[in-house]
Design a protein around this nucleic acid. Structure first.
Length: 689
DNA sequence: GTTATCTCACTAAT
DNA sequence: CATTAGTGAGATAA
């Protein structure tokens, strides 16, 4: 995420002016049904008398304890909203600013004057104000030299200047990590397709190697303290990711240090540590960490345990302690999605407050007490808070509903407001998938595969794999490898097992999301879980509508409300691997300059899922991808959202809303309404409509 | 060149 | 089948 981690996305100022959130006429009104039980009432997003769409659960009771005690430290909670009994939500329909007529919207957002957030208002769909020229300027301003040569090979050469290799910024940081993961995903894909691959598959090591050797890295200049481009709360899924951005240069070692040369003396000082809970590090308090020294052969087989020596990392920690130096701390946390691996969280700067030795099975080990510097945004502490929320909703301050889907999704989606008094978005029917009112057939009829079990990557006999160009679109753990014009998934009529890995976007909601009130952009969407780059988040659910029925100008101001439209103009961006960086690979199948194969317009105004709450950003962390699969012998197009990069918990999820094309013949973009974009990113286009 | 290291993915065991 | 323990090839910087 560009403009800062999500933890501090709630400004301390009281900038939210409630008088501006106007009451709006109810949408054709899905009146809520409330029971009178004091315990809590279900929030039913459906017409009370039906008909209920198939798969829709009209009533899903749950119980919530009222009130809450401990408020997590990451947000500035509003005590009053916190105490509001969950079950007694008033019925009034408050809606988003975006529900205003266009003229009003423009005026409103124009004087908002707040620049610290994402797009204005709720999801209102519309283009950003920017002509082709302004876009060019932005591109050229980039500190990176990205040379894209469109030719036979379509090779992208990404070069990072020596200056940026030494000292990074957020842009380079994101680019390096994106390149790392793109290569790693592709290497995994290649390995997956190999039959009986012997040996250990370490795509992370290979990817790291490539980046290191090509100089695609940043913050190589080793330094004590904060790193430019790095934000507290940033997460990593591999140790090598921390190497390539200069956070922690050791690929395995827990202590990174450098030697300072003072006059005549040389002295090692610590730069960063990784606490992986491998030793008996004490992580009781989120602000204190007891860290063990290195060496001594503890826990290793075939090695005799011995005393740890005051050398290397241990000496560096000791010296840093004496000097009172800051040390970067990374916390390794077990990944609940993939318990065999870890997620690394950058938890900011600590100082060593104390050091001593302890005896373990007769041998001495060093211990260091790390204390977190005050005034830093929460990172590890956020993870701990979320853990509590999952154990019991009562600890979540500002909670309005534990599950706004009323059980329509497998995973509950909390509705939270800890910034003002608004009790929820305008009513709509929650429905987890896309609804086609009439058959929507692509030109070519498609047939499913004939696989008996699960479709195998690299299987030439699987027609679904073949349709994807021979590559399996996802890695074995369900991560999307590359963006493509279209991804073909196995559908309900494919005979392969339901657990076939080629059904990623049809899986029920796995990520624990919450809909929350932003300070200046209406309601937004964020996640309690860390999200790895390439992870499927959700599809854009809603009703497929005819293009002919959509008025281009949106006369009544409601037509393009909550509309997703593939025919808009979207910025191209690079997410896939670069063929030039992979020795064996020279194909152009990672090219991302393609046309969307088929137009699709979805309205989520009356019916929709969590995707309708995602706001716009000019530097989004989520992108959409067309996916095709068949049911009832017909192919249907869907829009699936995937994470562009790793997204830390509680960071708002955003995607690029695109620009409405009003004059297709000349490619000019005519703007009829302006809204100031509040995405706050460095390459913000300024406005969107 | 050699060494130490709070890895990571696979396999086997429960 | 979910979790765990064992194990080995490896990358980086000292």
């Amino acid at each position: 995420m560009e403009g800062g981690s999500g933890y501090n996305s709630v400004p301390s100022s009281t900038s939210s002016d409630k008088s501006r959130v106007l009451d709006v006429k109810p949408l054709r009104s899905l009146k809520p049904v409330f029971s009178n039980t004091p315990q809590g009432s279900p929030f039913v997003c459906a017409p009370p008398n039906g008909p209920f769409p198939p798969g829709f659960t009209p009533f899903y009771p749950f119980s919530v304890q009222q009130g809450s005690q401990s408020s997590p430290d990451l947000n500035h909670q509003s005590p009053s909203s916190m105490q509001t009994p969950v079950g007694h939500m008033p019925a009034p329909l408050r809606s988003f600013r975006s529900s205003q007529p266009p003229e009003f919207q423009g005026a409103f957002n124009g004087d908002a004057g707040n620049d610290d957030g994402y797009s204005g208002g709720k999801k209102r769909a519309g283009p950003h104000l920017r002509g082709p020229n302004s876009y060019q300027k932005k591109k050229n301003k980039s500190a990176l030299s990205v040379v894209a040569s469109k030719g036979a090979g379509a090779s992208f050469v990404v070069d990072i200047s020596p200056l940026l290799r030494d000292d990074g910024n957020r842009e380079v940081y994101n680019l390096v990590l994106m390149r790392f993961d793109a290569i790693r995903r592709r290497l995994s894909q290649i390995e997956d397709a190999k039959e009986r691959s012997t040996g250990i598959r370490r795509a992370d090591l290979k990817a790291g190697n490539i980046l290191m050797s090509k100089g695609i890295r940043t913050n190589m200049r080793r330094r004590i303290g904060a790193l430019p481009g790095l934000e507290i709360g940033d997460i990593f899924f591999f140790r090598l990711e921390m190497c390539v951005v200069g956070l922690h240069a050791q690929s395995m070692g827990g202590i990174d240090y450098m030697v300072l040369k003072d006059d005549m003396e040389e002295e090692p000082v610590a730069l960063s540590i990784v606490s992986s809970e491998g030793y008996d590090d004490d992580a009781e308090d989120g602000n204190v960490l007891i860290y063990s020294g290195q060496g001594g052969n503890f826990g290793k087989k075939d090695k005799q345990a011995s005393d740890q020596k005051l050398e290397r990392g241990n000496l560096a920690l000791e010296r840093s302690f004496r000097r009172g130096n800051d040390i970067r701390v990374v916390r390794g946390i077990k990944d609940s999605v993939n318990p065999s691996s870890k997620i690394y969280v950058y938890d900011g700067l600590y100082k060593i407050q104390e050091s001593w030795t302890e005896s373990k099975s007769g041998c001495n080990i060093f211990k260091y007490k790390f204390v977190r510097l005050p005034g830093q945004p929460g990172a590890f502490s956020v993870w701990k808070s979320i853990q509590k929320w999952k154990e019991g909703f009562s600890s979540r301050a500002g909670l309005i509903l534990p599950d706004l889907t009323s059980g329509a999704e497998n995973t509950p989606v909390a509705l939270v407001n800890d910034v003002d008094e608004e009790k929820g978005p305008a009513y709509f029917t929650y429905f987890p998938t896309l609804k086609y009112s009439k058959s929507f057939n692509l030109a070519q009829p498609s047939f499913g595969c004939n696989c008996r079990n699960a479709c195998q990557p690299g299987d030439p006999n699987c027609s679904c794999v073949t349709k994807n160009g021979g590559d399996f679109p996802y890695t074995t753990n369900g991560i999307l490898v590359s963006r493509k014009p279209l991804i073909y998934e196995c559908g309900p009529t494919c005979p392969c097992f339901p657990n076939c890995k080629n059904r990623v976007s049809q899986m029920p909601l796995k990520i624990h999301l919450e809909v929350f009130k932003t300070t200046d952009r209406g309601w937004g969407l964020r996640s309690w879980d860390p999200i790895r780059a390439g992870t499927f988040i959700c599809e854009y659910a809603g009703e497929v509508i005819d293009k002919a029925k959509v008025k281009p100008g949106g006369e009544d101001g409601e037509n393009d409300e909550f509309v997703f439209d593939t025919t808009r103009v979207y910025d191209s961006f690079k997410w896939n691997y670069e063929p030039g960086l992979l020795d064996e690979e020279r194909s152009n199948d990672s090219d991302e300059n393609y046309e969307i194969p088929s137009p699709l317009i979805i309205s989520a105004k009356n019916v929709g899922n969590v995707a309708r709450f995602m706001n716009h950003s000019c530097s989004p962390n989520v992108f959409w991808q067309p996916v095709l699969y068949e049911h009832n012998n017909q192919s249907f197009l869907h829009i699936a959202f995937f994470a562009i990069r790793h997204v830390p918990p509680m960071t708002e999820l955003t995607f690029d809303y695109g620009v409405v094309r009003t004059n297709e013949a000349e490619g000019n973009i005519t703007l009829n309404r302006k809204k100031k974009c509040l995405c706050g990113s460095s390459n913000c286009r300024g406005y969107f409509v």
